[in-house]
Design a protein around this nucleic acid. Structure first.
Length: 837
DNA sequence: AGCACGCCGACT
DNA sequence: GTCGGCGTGCTC
C-alpha cells in the first residue's frame, strides 16, 4: 500500500504529493486525511495523506515508509482534503497551507531535535573514559534530551559531545510533536461494583477517619470521580486518597479531560417559538431543501429585528431530525454570550462553540468534540466552516455581507464561497442571512440571459417581529451646525436627545466609526506628523500606553511632548477617538455613566462580555464604541442610537465605501427600539445628500442596491466583474518597478490567446454578458507604499469568466517566480480582495 | 523550507 | 595548496 502525502513545507517546489510506503503495521491507521510523520530528505516532517493507492510510479528504491501516524482519528476527512485542493487552486496558495488552515492551532506541528543514545553494540569495547560514561548514562536516564539541556549539563565537554555524535554513540533525531497536549486529570477508580471496599474499611485502623470517609463515599457512589472533585466533596487531602491507592484498594490514574469553556454554566432550555407568517414563508423552502437533501443556496434578506435567528434555529432542528449536522457562522465580533446562549439553550450539549477568545487548548477540545461525534452543531467564526463533520445538512452564514469573512492571510479565502463549495460537495443547504446583503450575493439571486436559473434563491422578510416599526432616522447636517457656531462633536439635536434619555432613564448607543480614521499626532505649529520609519504610514496614538504605534509592523515609540521637528509644544491628537468622545460627554453631561468599547478596552479575555452585561444591567447610560456596538446587540432599554460621524467610511477611496456606509448605518439603526419602547436614530454627517446616507435613513435596501449596482456595472466593478489584486514588494524601488512591469507585460501576453479564443468561439450572437473580459490595471504604487522597509507596487486584474482568469494569473505567477525568487522579490495574490490596498 | 553539492577568493 | 562563500537543485 502506498500513500500520497503533502508535506509541511509551503514552497513552490514541494507543492505536490510525495509517495510513501504504508508499513503494514500502520495500515489500519493510515487514511485519507491522516496526519503522519514522514522522512523527507534528511529530516522528518509532518504531512497529510491525500490519497491511498495499491501501486506507485516512483522507483522502489526511492520510496521511504511513513514513520508514524499522529492522531488516533484522522483530523481531516477526505471531503476536507478535496476542499483543500479546491481552495489552493481558487486562491492560489500552497496545498499544505490550505490544509493547515482547517486545523486548530494546537495541531500545528512542532519540530523538536533531541539527542538519544545511538547504536551501542559495537562500540562497547572502547575503554570508556568516566566523562563519556557520565554523558551516556545521563542521556540514557532521560531517554532523550535536547542539545541545549545536554550542553548546559556538560558545559565543559562540548568537544567530547561533538565527537560522540560524529562517532554515532549519540545520535540526533527530529521528532514531530503537537503544539498542544491534551489535558489530564487524576481520577479515582473504585473497583467494579465497589467490591472489596467493605473489607478495606474494616482493615483500616480505627483513627484513619479520613480514609474511611473516602471509602464510605465510594461504597455509596461506586463510579469513577475526579480527584479534585472528590477532595472538594468530602473535604479530604490528596495524600489520604493516595494512600488508599497505594494499598491497592482503589485505582488512581490520569484520564484525559476536556477543557469546557462553558463548564458549569446551565443554559435554560428553550422551545421553538411560533413563527410569524413571514418567517414561515421563508422557513418552508429551507426546510424542504434540507428534508430533500438538495443542495441549494438561499439568500435570506431580513430587516434588523425580523427574527432571522429563530428561522436558523428551526432549520437546524430540521437538520438534526434528519440526523445531519449543521454549521453556523457568525462574524467574530457578534459571537456574543447572548448568541451562544440561544443556540446552547435550544440544542444543549449538541453544540460546540469555536471562537478566537478561546485558548488554544479550549478550542482544540471543542474541535475534538466534533471529530468524536459528540456534537451535531458548530457555531463559530470564519474557520468553523472547516468543522470536520461528514454529514452536513445545513450551513448558515449570518451577516453574510461582513468583510471579516474574507481571510486576510494566506489562504485568502472567502468563507461564503468556501461554504458554497463545501455544501456542493456534501449536498447541503446554505443559508446566507443579512439585513444588508452583499451586492455579490444579491446579484447571484437575479436572473440573467445566460443564466435562467440564478445560483442563489432570494427569501425576504420585510417586517420586524410583533410589527414593531423601524425607528425614524434623523440626518443631521454637521456643516449647518458649524455655520451656527457649534464646534463640538455633538449636534444640538443629538445633545437634546441624549439629555432626554438621561431624564427618562433610558439608554443610548453611540457609534464612532474609526476605520481609516486612526488617531494620529500632529504639531500645530509646523504640521509635523510622526511617521513609521519602516512603513509609509503615520503612527497611531494609543492612550493606554501613551505610545505611538505602527499598525503594520508593530514599531512603537514614546509619545512626544515637544515637536521633534520645530520643538513647539503645540501637539494635537487628531481623529476623533472614542476617548475624546467620552471626555466630551462627561464635560457636557456631568455625572453621565459611559461604557467605552474599543480595541483598547476589550483586549482582556472576557472584557467584551463584562461591558455588555454591565450595560444590560443598566449600570451605564451610554454605550460608546466602534463597529463592535453595531452588530447583533439587543437591549430592551436602548431607545436612542447616535452615529457621531457617518462619513468616515465614505471618505475612504474604495469602490465599496458606499456599500459599507449603508451597511453600517442600517445595522446600527437596527439597535434602537427592538422592544416595546419606540426608538430613534440620529446620523451626523457632512454629506447628508449622499445616496448611501439617504437610503439608509429610509431603511430602503433594495433602492440602495439598485442604485449601487448601476454604478458598479458602469465602472466594471464587482459584482459585474471580479478582481484579483497582485502585490509586489522589494527593498529597492527601481528593481521593483521593473519587475512589476515585466509581470504585467507577461500577464497580458499570456491572456491574449484566451481572449482571442473567446472571440472566435462565441460569435456576435452571444450577448455581451457572457463574453470574456480581462483587463489589467497598473502597476502602480500601493496605497501603503512601504511596509517593514519593503516598497510595494500592485496591479489589479478585472475579469469575467472566472476559471480562465485564475489559470492565466496562475501561469504568470509561476513564470514570474522563477525569475523573482533570486531577487528576493515577493508576490502576493488576492482573489476577490475586500480592500484594494 | 532545509540541506547538500559545487565552483571561485583570503588564509595557515 | 585548503577553508569557506552562498548559487542551484532536490526532497517520495
Amino acid at each position: 500500500m502506498y500513500a500520497k502525502v503533502i508535506v509541511d513545507v509551503p514552497a513552490k517546489q514541494t507543492n505536490r504529493a510525495f509517495d510513501y510506503e504504508v508499513p503494514s503495521s500502520l495500515s489500519k491507521w493510515v487514511e485519507v486525511g491522516s496526519r503522519v510523520g514522514v522522512p523527507f530528505g534528511p529530516r522528518v516532517l509532518q504531512g497529510f495523506v491525500v490519497e491511498l493507492q495499491e501501486e506507485t510510479q516512483v522507483d522502489a528504491k526511492r520510496i521511504k515508509p511513513i514513520q508514524n501516524v499522529l492522531d488516533l482519528v484522522p483530523p481531516l476527512t477526505s471531503e476536507l482534503v478535496s476542499l483543500g485542493r479546491w481552495i489552493s487552486r481558487m486562491y492560489m496558495c500552497h496545498e499544505v497551507t490550505a490544509l493547515q488552515a482547517m486545523l486548530p492551532a494546537a495541531l500545528k506541528a512542532k519540530y523538536e531535535r533531541v539527542i538519544i543514545v545511538g547504536d551501542e553494540s559495537e562500540e562497547q569495547s572502547f575503554l570508556d573514559m568516566p566523562d563519556i560514561e557520565a554523558i551516556i548514562s545521563f542521556v540514557k536516564s532521560k531517554e532523550s534530551v535536547s542539545m541545549d539541556v545536554l550542553l548546559e549539563r556538560f558545559s565543559k565537554e562540548g568537544a567530547l559531545i561533538k565527537e560522540l555524535l560524529s562517532s554515532g554513540r549519540l545520535t540526533e533525531v527530529q521528532l514531530v510533536k503537537d503544539r498542544m497536549n491534551t489535558k489530564k486529570a487524576l481520577t479515582v477508580f473504585p473497583p467494579a461494583g465497589g467490591r472489596g471496599l467493605e473489607e478495606a474499611l474494616s482493615e483500616l485502623p480505627a483513627r484513619a477517619n479520613k480514609q474511611k470517609d473516602v471509602l464510605r463515599y465510594l461504597i455509596e457512589h461506586p463510579h469513577a470521580i475526579r480527584l479534585t472533585e472528590l477532595m472538594e466533596t468530602i473535604e479530604v487531602g490528596a495524600s489520604t486518597v493516595k494512600s488508599l491507592a497505594d494499598r491497592g484498594w482503589i485505582e488512581l490514574r490520569e484520564v484525559e479531560v476536556m477543557r469546557d469553556p462553558y463548564m458549569g454554566r446551565a443554559f435554560e432550555r428553550t422551545k421553538p417559538l411560533t413563527l410569524t407568517e413571514e418567517q414561515s414563508g421563508v422557513f418552508a423552502p429551507i426546510r424542504d431543501a434540507v428534508a430533500e437533501d438538495r443542495h441549494e443556496v438561499f439568500l435570506l434578506h431580513g430587516v434588523t429585528g425580523s427574527g432571522k435567528t429563530e428561522v436558523y434555529l428551526q432549520s437546524i432542528q430540521q437538520c438534526l431530525d434528519m440526523d445531519k449536522e449543521a454549521i453556523v457562522l457568525v462574524p467574530e465580533i457578534s459571537l456574543t454570550p447572548q448568541m451562544v446562549e440561544r443556540f446552547k439553550g435550544r440544542f444543549g450539549d449538541l453544540v460546540a462553540v469555536l471562537h478566537s477568545r478561546l485558548s488554544n487548548g479550549e478550542r482544540y477540545d471543542e474541535w475534538r468534540k466534533i471529530t468524536r461525534k459528540q456534537v451535531k452543531v458548530v457555531i463559530g467564526a470564519r474557520s468553523a466552516i472547516f468543522a470536520p463533520f461528514t454529514n452536513i445538512g445545513l450551513i448558515i452564514i449570518d451577516e453574510e455581507h461582513e468583510s471579516s469573512y474574507k481571510q486576510e492571510e494566506s489562504p485568502k479565502y472567502h468563507t461564503r464561497d468556501v461554504a458554497v463549495q463545501r455544501a456542493k460537495q456534501q449536498d447541503a443547504v446554505v443559508v446566507l442571512g443579512s439585513a444588508t446583503p452583499s451586492l455579490e450575493s444579491m446579484e447571484k439571486t437575479r436572473r440573467r440571459r445566460d443564466r435562467p436559473k440564478p445560483p442563489f434563491t432570494l427569501l425576504t422578510m420585510k417586517e420586524r417581529v410583533a410589527s414593531r416599526p423601524m425607528p425614524p432616522v434623523t440626518i443631521v447636517d454637521m456643516r449647518e451646525e458649524l455655520k451656527t457656531g457649534n464646534r463640538s462633536m455633538f449636534s444640538r439635536s443629538l445633545y437634546k436627545a441624549i439629555e432626554e434619555r438621561l431624564h427618562k432613564k433610558e439608554q443610548t448607543v453611540l457609534l464612532l466609526n474609526r476605520r481609516g480614521y486612526a488617531t494620529f499626532v500632529m504639531c500645530r505649529t509646523c504640521g509635523f506628523v510622526s511617521q513609521c520609519p519602516h512603513c509609509d504610514i503615520s503612527l497611531t496614538y494609543h492612550q493606554s500606553s501613551h505610545a505611538l504605534r505602527c499598525h503594520y509592523c508593530g514599531y512603537a515609540e514614546r509619545e512626544v511632548k515637544e515637536c521633534p521637528s520645530c520643538q513647539s509644544e503645540h501637539i494635537r491628537h487628531f481623529g476623533t477617538g472614542t476617548q475624546r468622545v467620552e471626555e466630551e460627554l462627561s464635560k457636557i453631561f456631568p455625572g453621565i455613566r459611559v461604557i467605552r468599547m474599543d480595541v483598547d478596552t476589550t483586549t482582556e479575555k472576557g472584557s467584551h462580555e463584562k461591558w455588555l452585561t454591565m450595560f444590560r444591567e443598566k449600570q451605564a447610560d451610554v454605550l460608546l464604541g466602534t463597529q463592535m456596538v453595531a452588530k447583533g446587540l439587543d437591549f430592551p432599554d436602548v431607545t436612542l442610537v447616535g452615529v457621531i460621524a457617518a462619513d468616515t467610511v465614505l471618505n475612504i477611496p474604495d469602490f465599496r465605501s458606499a456599500e459599507r456606509t449603508f451597511q453600517l448605518l442600517t445595522q446600527v439603526a437596527g439597535r434602537a427600539g427592538r422592544h416595546e419602547k419606540q426608538g430613534e436614530v440620529f446620523v451626523q454627517t457632512y454629506t447628508p445628500e449622499h445616496y448611501s446616507v439617504q437610503y439608509a435613513s429610509h431603511h430602503d435596501y433594495i433602492a440602495f442596491a439598485n442604485h449601487e449596482m448601476d454604478i458598479r456595472a458602469n465602472l466594471g466593478y464587482p459584482p459585474y466583474q471580479r478582481l484579483i489584486l497582485i502585490t509586489f514588494s522589494h527593498e529597492q524601488v527601481p528593481l521593483l518597478v521593473r519587475m512589476a512591469e515585466a509581470f504585467v507585460t507577461r500577464l497580458k501576453e499570456i491572456a491574449l490567446p484566451y481572449t482571442r479564443q473567446q472571440v472566435d468561439l462565441f460569435s456576435e450572437a452571444v450577448s455581451m454578458d457572457s463574453s470574456f473580459h480581462f483587463d489589467v490595471l497598473g502597476p502602480v504604487a500601493s496605497p501603503i507604499s512601504r511596509i517593514k522597509d519593503r516598497y510595494r507596487f500592485q496591479c489589479v486584474v478585472k475579469y469575467r469568466g472566472e476559471d480562465l482568469a485564475a489559470e492565466i494569473v496562475g501561469k504568470t505567477v509561476a513564470w514570474f517566480e522563477e525569475r523573482s525568487a533570486k531577487e528576493k522579490l515577493l508576490v502576493s495574490v488576492d482573489v476577490d480582495p475586500q480592500y484594494l490596498m
